[in-house]
Amino acid sequence: MTRMSRSRARRSVLVTAGLAAAIAVVCALALWRPWTSQDAAVSRAEAGPADAVAVASVDLPDHPRVLVFGDSWTWGAAASSPAEGYAYVLAELLDGETIVDGVPGSGYLVPGGEGIGTFGERIARMDPRLGPDLIIVQGSINDRHLPDTGYADAVTAAWDALAGIYPGTPVVVLGPAPQVLPVESATARIDRDLAGLAAARGWPYISPVLEEWITPEDYEWVIDTGDIGRDHPTSAGHAYLAQRVADALAALRPAR
Rank of each mutant, 00 (worst) to 15 (best):
V137F: 05
L134C: 03
A157Y: 04
V222D: 00
V173M: 12
E92S: 15
A52H: 14
A198Y: 04
L94R: 01
W159N: 09
T2S: 03
A188L: 07
A251W: 05
G105E: 06
P64W: 04
Y88K: 11
I116F: 10
R122H: 06
F119K: 03
V55I: 12
N142S: 10
L67N: 10
I136A: 04
G70K: 12
Y166F: 15
T156P: 02
D224F: 02
I165Q: 02
L19Y: 04
V89S: 00
A177Q: 12
S72C: 13
V180F: 08
V53P: 03
A78S: 15
R33P: 15
E92V: 00
S12I: 00
D153W: 06
A9C: 13
E46F: 11
T234K: 01
P82S: 10
Q138V: 13
L90A: 07
S5N: 08
E84Q: 02
F119L: 09
A87V: 10
A157T: 12
A9N: 12
S235K: 08
L174F: 11
L197K: 08
T225F: 03
T16N: 04
E211T: 06
P64Q: 11
T74I: 09
R125N: 13
A124T: 10
R3C: 10
R10F: 01
D127A: 06
V58F: 01
G113F: 15
R144E: 07
